[in-house]
């Protein structure tokens, strides 16, 4: 049994012609960086892994998580966390409600509340549970989004240009936080980016996608 996230002979087709091909094993705690020009289908690869591929595309090959084939598991049962370049905190929920939304059900109200408080404390946002997400700064939102994702107990982590909206200083901070957390929790990470600095900071394997379709 292979631990980590395995992409076995993954090939994504658009209108019958191949768009991307990836065959790779991401070990727990490791980062795979995927780079390439925009439009090459990096986000499409992530959509295939989360199970939200648009019908215009066709995915082949298998996705395995800790040895289990999840290619046909519905998106909400995959336990794969994803961060986008926008925080995408749900605007109608408080910060705490956003976190509770992602937590697996179970435990008393007080226990859940305590977990949320502790998790916020970990990213220096103690006492923010009742805040409106719209009133947070960009860096704070990014941290809440990360915590929300971690509290859902993912077994792998996808980053879709996750740091590109943050300014240079904040970017390094948030990036370090994400990578450190992933390493501590032994999560396999797949990062899609067009930023060489992100790739360098990740330190893992780098694949550069090229356009397979001649245009």
């Amino acid at each position: 049994m292979t631990n980590g996230l395995t992409l076995r002979n993954v090939c994504i087709l658009r209108a019958g012609s191949p768009l991307i091909e990836v065959d790779h094993v991401i070990a727990p705690g490791e980062v795979l960086t995927v780079m390439g020009p925009s439009g090459v289908g990096k986000s499409t690869l992530l959509a295939f892994i989360t199970g939200t591929l648009a019908p215009a595309f066709k995915g082949m090959g298998t996705v395995e998580l800790d040895g289990q084939d999840i290619t046909h598991v519905p998106p909400h049962r995959r336990q794969i966390g994803i961060l986008f370049q926008d925080d995408l905190l749900f605007p109608h929920m408080s910060v705490g409600a956003n976190l509770a939304f992602g937590m697996p059900a179970g435990g008393s109200r007080a226990e859940r509340r305590a977990t949320i408080e502790a998790a916020l404390d970990d990213v220096e946002l103690a006492g923010y549970a009742d805040r409106d997400p719209a009133t947070l700064s960009g860096g704070q939102k990014a941290r809440v989004a990360l915590v929300r994702m971690l509290l859902s107990k993912p077994r792998a982590l996808l980053l879709d240009e996750a740091f590109s909206r943050l300014d240079a200083e904040l970017r390094a901070q948030v990036r370090d936080l994400v990578f450190r957390t992933a390493r501590d929790r032994a999560l396999p990470v797949l990062m899609v980016t067009h930023d060489a600095e992100d790739a360098a900071a990740a330190g893992g394997t780098l694949i550069t996608l090229e356009s397979l379709t001649k245009t």
């Binding site: 909400h76 986008f84 929300r148 859902s152 993912p154």
Partner: peptide, 8 residues
């Protein structure tokens, strides 16, 4: 996508 990734 995010909500589903969170298990919803």
């Amino acid at each position: 996508t995010v909500a589903q990734a969170l298990g919803a």
